[in-house]
Design a protein around this nucleic acid. Structure first.
Length: 489
DNA sequence: GCATGATCATGC
DNA sequence: GCATGATCATGC
C-alpha cells in the first residue's frame, strides 16, 4: 500500500520503481523545489552543505524520505532493493562513462569475512540495485543543476555474476590469508576492493587475520570499467555482441583467465603464417598483424571484447626475438607535464592506470622469418612493483620535470635537429621510462626558439617552455621478465 | 646490438 | 584530426 507521506510503498518493488523513474530528466534543484518546503535561503544553505556523495543523500532524504545510513542492509530492506545514485560523463565521442566506481559495502577487518557469497552483506547490496545515474556535466558550475539521466533496476546478468563470484572468492581468500595489505583493484575482473579514506595514514588499520599487519581500509565496488559497460550496454541499450564467453555455463567451473588461456592454447605452436592462412588474413607482417590474429583466435571483432571492456583488459601482442629479447618497449597514453607535477603518486593517472588495468599478453617467438605462438598470460603489475619500484621511478621523473629539466641541441649527419633531455634513460630504471609520444617532435624555448607543431605535439613545462609530449613506457627487459615462463617453463 | 629521440598506422 | 598502439632510424 502506498504511504501517503512518502508517495510510494517501500515494501513493493514496482511502487518504488514507478516512483523513482519520475526522477528521469529532472535536475536536483527541481527535485528539491518539488519535495522540500525550504525557502530559497535554506535551499542555498542545503546546497552548500553538499559534499561528495551528497547528491545521493539528497535523493534519499528529500525524495525517498528516509535517512541515509551506513547499515550493511539494503536501503529498502523489506524488498532487498539498494539505492545507488552515481554520476556519468559523456565523452567527446558521445559515449557514456561512469564517473566513479560504484562503492557497494565496506570490507570488514574487525571480524571474520563471509565465505558464502549468497549469504554475504555484499549480495544483499547487489541482488537488486536501483541505479540512479545523473550527468555530471562539468560545464555547469552548480551540481544541483545536474540532470538525472537514467533510473533503472539493475542486477548483474548471470555470466557477469559468475565472474563477480570469482572476484569475491579471490578477495576473501586473500583477506583470510592475512594479505589484505596486498589487495589491489587489478587483482580482479569486475568486483574490486577499492581503498576508502582520504589518505593512507588515516585509513590504515590492523587486519583481523594472520599477523594483523595494518592494511588500507577497503570496500567492495564495481569497477569503473564495469559500470561504464553497464551504462552503455545494459542501460543506454548499445548493442555490441563482441563477447568471448558465449554462455554462462562456460564460466561456472573455470576462471575467466582459464577460459581465454584455453582458447589460445588450441593455437599454441602455430606460426603467424599458418594462422593468417587459417583466418584468411593477408600475411604481410604489418604493425597490426599479431594483434589482429589474437582477436581472430579469441573470436572477437576487435580488442574491445565485452569482457575486456568490463574488466579493463588491454590486449598486447608481444614478439620475442631469438635472443629472448623484445625489440621495443611498450607505450602507454601520453601525459601532460603540468598535470603530473600536481599529482601525488598514490592518486596519479599512472598509478590508477596500472592499478585498474590488466594486460593480456599473447606471446609470439621468432624462428627465422616467422613468429610462433607460445602462449598467453593475463597480467597486472605486481603489488611490490607498483607500490615501490615504479613509485620511486615515477617520482624521480616527476621531480626532474618539475624542477630541473634541461635540453641539449643535437644535429645529425643529415642536418636534422633533435633535443636531448636529462630525464633518466631506460638503462638506469627497472620498470618504466619516459619517452616522446607525439606525431612529430616539437619544442618552444624561453629564448624564442621554436621547432615543429607546438600546439599539436608539445605541452608546457613548469618553466613555461614546451617539450614534445611524452608518455611512460614499460621497459622491454621488464616485460620479458613478466612472460619468460611461457617458453622457459 | 642497444639506447634513445622520433615517427608511423589504424580506427573512429 | 585525435587517441592509441606500435615501430623506425641514428649514433655509439
Amino acid at each position: 500500500m502506498e504511504d501517503k507521506n512518502l508517495g510510494y510503498n517501500p515494501n513493493d518493488i514496482d511502487s518504488i520503481y514507478k516512483y523513482a523513474v519520475q526522477l528521469e530528466n529532472k535536475t536536483f534543484l527541481e527535485v528539491l523545489k518539488e519535495k522540500s518546503h525550504l525557502n530559497s535561503d535554506a535551499l542555498t544553505a542545503y546546497a552548500n552543505k553538499l559534499r561528495k556523495g551528497g547528491l545521493g543523500n539528497l535523493l534519499e532524504e528529500v525524495y525517498f524520505g528516509y535517512k541515509a545510513n551506513s547499515v550493511q542492509d539494503a536501503d529498502f530492506a523489506e524488498v532487498g532493493v539498494e539505492l545507488k545514485a552515481s554520476p556519468y560523463e559523456v565523452t567527446k565521442k558521445g559515449e557514456l562513462r561512469a564517473g566513479e566506481r560504484l562503492v557497494l559495502t565496506m570490507i570488514n577487518y574487525n571480524g571474520p569475512v563471509e565465505d558464502d557469497f549468497y549469504h554475504s552483506h555484499l549480495w544483499k547490496k547487489i541482488r537488486l540495485i536501483l541505479l540512479i545515474y545523473y550527468w555530471r556535466n562539468k560545464q555547469l558550475n552548480d551540481n544541483l543543476l545536474y540532470k538525472i539521466g537514467f533510473v533503472r533496476l539493475f542486477t548483474p546478468p548471470e555470466a557477469d555474476l559468475e565472474i563477480i563470484k570469482q572476484d569475491y572468492d579471490y578477495i576473501v581468500t586473500k583477506i583470510k590469508a592475512g594479505l589484505a595489505h596486498e589487495l589491489s583493484e587489478g587483482d580482479t575482473m569486475y568486483l574490486g576492493a577499492c581503498t576508502k579514506g582520504a589518505t593512507a595514514e588515516k585509513s590504515t588499520v590492523p587486519q583481523y587475520y594472520g599477523d594483523k599487519i595494518p592494511a588500507r581500509k577497503r570496500a567492495f565496488s564495481f569497477k569503473n570499467s564495469y559500470m561504464t559497460y553497464v551504462l552503455n550496454h545494459y542501460i543506454a541499450g548499445k548493442n555490441s555482441d563482441n563477447s568471448i564467453i558465449k554462455d554462462a555455463i562456460q564460466i561456472k567451473e573455470k576462471t575467466f583467465e582459464d577460459v581465454i588461456q584455453e582458447i589460445v592454447s588450441d593455437y599454441v605452436g602455430k606460426t603467424d603464417k599458418e594462422l593468417c592462412e587459417k583466418f584468411g588474413r593477408e600475411y604481410n607482417n604489418n604493425k597490426s598483424q599479431w594483434h589482429e590474429l589474437t582477436c581472430k583466435i579469441l573470436g572477437i571483432r576487435d580488442e574491445h571484447a565485452d569482457e575486456f571492456v568490463k574488466a579493463n583488459i588491454k590486449v598486447k601482442a608481444v614478439r620475442v626475438e631469438e635472443n629472448e629479447k623484445i625489440v621495443e618497449s611498450m607505450s602507454f597514453p601520453p601525459f601532460k607535464f603540468l598535470d603530473i607535477i600536481k599529482e601525488e603518486y598514490e592518486d596519479s593517472t599512472f598509478h590508477e592506470y596500472f592499478e585498474e588495468t590488466k594486460l593480456f599478453f599473447v606471446v609470439w617467438k621468432r624462428e627465422g622469418d616467422i613468429y610462433r605462438l607460445v602462449g598467453s598470460k593475463l597480467w597486472h603489475m605486481p603489488y611490490q612493483d607498483l607500490e615501490i619500484t615504479a613509485r620511486r621511478e615515477w617520482e624521480e621523473y616527476k621531480r626532474i620535470i618539475q624542477y630541473e629539466i634541461t635540453f641539449e641541441k643535437c644535429i645529425d649527419s643529415n642536418g636534422k635537429v633533435s633535443f636531448k633531455n636529462n630525464l633518466p634513460n631506460k638503462s638506469v630504471t627497472e620498470i618504466i621510462h619516459v619517452r616522446p609520444h607525439a606525431q612529430k617532435a616539437a619544442y618552444r624555448f624561453n629564448n624564442g626558439e621554436e621547432y615543429g607543431n607546438v600546439e599539436r605535439d608539445a605541452n608546457m613545462l613548469p618553466n613555461g617552455e614546451y617539450m614534445t609530449t611524452q608518455s611512460f613506457w614499460l621497459n622491454n627487459k621488464y616485460v620479458v621478465l613478466q612472460i619468460d615462463d611461457l617458453w622457459k617453463k
